[in-house]
Write a protein that binds this DNA or RNA. Structure first.
Lengths: 238, 238
DNA sequence: CGCAAACTTGATGTTGCTCAAGCTAGGTGG
DNA sequence: CCACCTAGCTTGAGCAACATCAAGTTTGCG
């Protein structure tokens, strides 16, 4: 998978909590366990909203979230879809800069902000690991800026499909991708409209690059061609 | 200034070096001084390119840089303009994820990556400060995603003008803004074409919101109206 | 079975892009 | 000193991609 394609907003990087306790044995783990609580959210529920005071840091354990920002007239941009292992809620100035909502049923590991900050100060190497996670997210955000500002609709949709594929099958090319979010979510993530997303998927299907057994499931048939499209090499043979 | 408007890619946050040595007296300062070298770049010169091995971390002392990413066919997106105090080169995987070029004559403070990483490990609180800077950059990147994905041309240009104004006059509304970058740079920052940027500036001038004494200087005449446009409140009175 | 939400498809519209001239300013050499 | 030259900017005309508006269709659920 090339860097172009990886454009999820948060890096998948276990920092502690439930996921981490299974994969990491470091000193931070036990500290995190001590201050964490498990939480569930039903589809559509809000974790926190843009402008809220940032009281907690969360780690996604199961399910999928959307993060988004709104303009006053209701235009929405989804900055990222977060699945298991992703971290959210590290607000710069103590104020949430985006809204976080559950797409599916979600399980979260929640840390009190104050406790989390204490860990940053006290656990050696913890701040550095968070810095690595955040730097990675920043890089992903810059890839998404490139997508939003300079890619055409087909290139955007191809990028999205590969992102979903990469996020799921730990393997590079899981053929079948589950798409729990609506077309409206996809559109607001890619800076398009629902209709354009739908039309573009139809075109990709007609061209044999993908199949759509049902709206929430997409089969990738021509991974290479999708990759070319996503990278912006549509007219390779000029 | 509202959060909507602050959308520069890197937070202006002195971490050390020349700028910091004048504003901070903390322990990190002397450490940074010990491993830093001053460097100059002429307009158009490249600091490092996307894909390069990340060998150094830089802090801008004077002048302005552009950071950008390219698609294979040459489409460019500028992810940020960096002026004095901004930090760059903290690459996640040791590889630069964007190209950095001087717009004006630039003075930089350069740190060897290895030395910089040692400081992260050894100087207490240093990683935490970098985390704060990077989190702030991430938030700015998300604002820019909102701009690229959901704002109209006029709103984009208004946002850009206020960003420039805020970056310069430390005051909230410096009336006259120096714009050292070309229209092409502005276009590639906003996801537009040169022509659209030019036309939009002309329209803002005709409407009395700004004046353009020369292409590199912009006077802001109606700060409030610009702010409304930038925030996406163009049709407030419906 | 019926309802509502989500998705697809079609017809039309508009924003911003493309292509094509002119214009302006700053730098250079006759 | 001035005319030229070039790079960058502005302006105009036409066009294309995507948005909008408007039906239909499918899906999932009570």
């Amino acid at each position: 998978m090339t860097a172009q394609v990886v454009s999820n907003t948060t890096a998948k990087f276990d920092i502690g909590g439930i996921v981490a306790t299974r994969t990491l044995g470091g000193p931070a783990t036990s500290h995190l366990m001590a201050v964490s609580t498990l939480q569930r959210k039903a589809p559509g529920e809000t974790l926190f909203a843009e402008g809220d005071e940032a009281e907690s840091v969360y780690e996604v354990v199961r399910g999928m979230l959307r993060l988004y920002k709104l303009l006053p007239d209701g235009r929405r941009l989804i900055t990222g879809f977060l699945s298991a292992g992703h971290l959210l809620g590290l607000a710069p100035e103590g104020v949430c800069v985006y809204t976080a909502e559950a797409i599916t049923e979600v399980t979260l590991c929640r840390y009190k902000r104050t406790a989390f900050e204490r860990l940053i100060d006290e656990v050696p190497g913890f701040a550095k690991r968070l810095l690595a996670v955040t730097s990675h997210e920043l890089s992903a955000a810059q890839n998404q800026m490139l997508l939003l500002g300079r890619k055409a609709a087909t290139e955007k949709v191809a990028s999205f499909l590969l992102l979903m594929a990469g996020q799921q099958g730990g393997d590079d090319d899981a053929d079948t991708v589950e798409v729990p979010m609506t077309r409206s979510d996809i559109a607001d993530y890619l800076g398009l409209t629902i209709e354009t997303v739908s039309r573009t998927l139809t075109k990709l299907r007609q061209d044999g690059l993908i199949a759509l057994p049902c709206p929430t499931r997409i089969e990738i048939h021509d991974h290479d061609r999708l990759q070319e499209l996503a990278a912006g090499e549509g007219a390779t043979d000029l």
